[in-house]
C-alpha cells in the first residue's frame, strides 16, 4: 500500500507525463540528452534525484524494484531509495537481478545479462561527456549537433601520449548508435561492453543538470578507441574471496592493519547467487 498523502510514485501525474515525454524523445534519439524540468525531490542532489525521477515516472503497481549502489543492495543510499519507493508506491522490492523489472543503479551494471522487458535506470551526476574538454555549453551543443567529436579523440590521444594507454577507467565515453557521444555515468569501463546491444532498456537521469537520455534495447554502444589501441575493459587480476569468480568486477578490501588486501565481487547479488568457494571446491 502507498502511504497516505502521496501520489503514486511521489511525483504528481503532470510531472510524470512531462518526464515520460522526455523519455520518449530520449528513446527516439539514442544517446541524445533531452532537457527536462527536474523537480525538487525529498533527497539532495547527488543522491540520485535524476534516476529517482525517471523511476518514479515509469514505475507501475506490478513492477518489482531493485536498487543498487556500487553494485550492492545494502548500502545506505540504496536502502533509502528502495525504502522511499516502497513508501510512495508500495511495489515489491528485491535484491535479485533476475526478479527485478526495474533496476535503479549508481556506478555499476549488474553482472547478470539483463533481458528484454527489464529497465535499467542510471543515476547520472554529469551527463555531458565533453564538459571537461569544452566548458562552453553552447559549444558542446553545437558539437553534438554536428557530431563533431574530434576533441574527444584528442583527449584519448593525450592519454596514450602521456601514459602509454587511455587512463580513463570510469565514465569512459561511448558512441551510441554511431551518432551521439554519451557519458555512460561513472560506471567502471569494465561495464561498458554490457551496454552494447543490451536487451533491456537503459534510461539515464541527471537531476542537477536536468537531462535525460536513453539507449533502447539492442542498440550499438561503442567505447571510443584507436585502431592500434583498442578499448580494453580493465579488471583486477584476482578472484573473489567469497565465490571465486574471475569474471566479475571486484572491489578491493583492506582486511587488516598490515594492509592485507582481499577482492570481492562488487555485485552482491551475483556473488550470493554463486556457490560459495568451499562447496565449489568439493
Amino acid at each position: 500500500m502507498t502511504e497516505a498523502g502521496y501520489n503514486f510514485g511521489y511525483l504528481d501525474e503532470n510531472t510524470k507525463r512531462m518526464i515520460r515525454r522526455a523519455l520518449l524523445q530520449a528513446v527516439a534519439l539514442p544517446g541524445y540528452q533531452v532537457p527536462f524540468g527536474s523537480r525538487e525531490m525529498p533527497l539532495p542532489y547527488g543522491w540520485g534525484t535524476g534516476g529517482i525521477q525517471v523511476t518514479a515516472s515509469i514505475i507501475g503497481a506490478d513492477d518489482t524494484l531493485k536498487v543498487i549502489d556500487q553494485g550492492a543492495d545494502d548500502t545506505t543510499n540504496a536502502v533509502s531509495i528502495r525504502r522511499f519507493f516502497n513508501r510512495v508506491t508500495g511495489v515489491a522490492t528485491t535484491d535479485r537481478t533476475a526478479e527485478a523489472t526495474i533496476i535503479q543503479t549508481r556506478h555499476r551494471v549488474p553482472e547478470m545479462t539483463l533481458r528484454e522487458g527489464q529497465v535499467l535506470v542510471y543515476q547520472v551526476p554529469m551527463p555531458e561527456p565533453l564538459f571537461r574538454l569544452e566548458p562552453r555549453v553552447a559549444e558542446t551543443k553545437r558539437m553534438h549537433a554536428l557530431a563533431d567529436y574530434g576533441l574527444m579523440h584528442v583527449k584519448l590521444y593525450e592519454d596514450i601520449a602521456r601514459h602509454g594507454a587511455v587512463t580513463t577507467s570510469y565514465n569512459y565515453p561511448v558512441l551510441v548508435n554511431r551518432r551521439y557521444l554519451m557519458s555512460p555515468s561513472p560506471i567502471p569501463a569494465f561495464d561498458n561492453p554490457k551496454l552494447d546491444r543490451m536487451p533491456a532498456l537503459q534510461l539515464f537521469g541527471a537531476g542537477r543538470e536536468k537531462r535525460i537520455y536513453a539507449v533502447p534495447p539492442y542498440t550499438e554502444v561503442k567505447s571510443l578507441d584507436f585502431e592500434d589501441h583498442p578499448f580494453k575493459p580493465a579488471r583486477a587480476d584476482a578472484a573473489c574471496v567469497i565465490c571465486g569468480s574471475r569474471a566479475s568486477y571486484l572491489d578491493e578490501l583492506i582486511v587488516d592493519d598490515g594492509g592485507k588486501r582481499h577482492f570481492v565481487c562488487s555485485d552482491t547479488d551475483y556473488c550470493a547467487s554463486r556457490p560459495p568457494l568451499q562447496e565449489a571446491a568439493e
Partner: peptide, 27 residues
Amino acid sequence: LRLRVSAGGNVGERLMAAGARHYGNIR
C-alpha cells in the same frame, strides 16, 4: 591553439576530426 593539449595533439586534432583513428599514424 589548444594550450592544454600537447604539440602532437594540437597537430593531430584536425586529422582526428576528419576521422583518423590510428594513433601511430596520427603521431
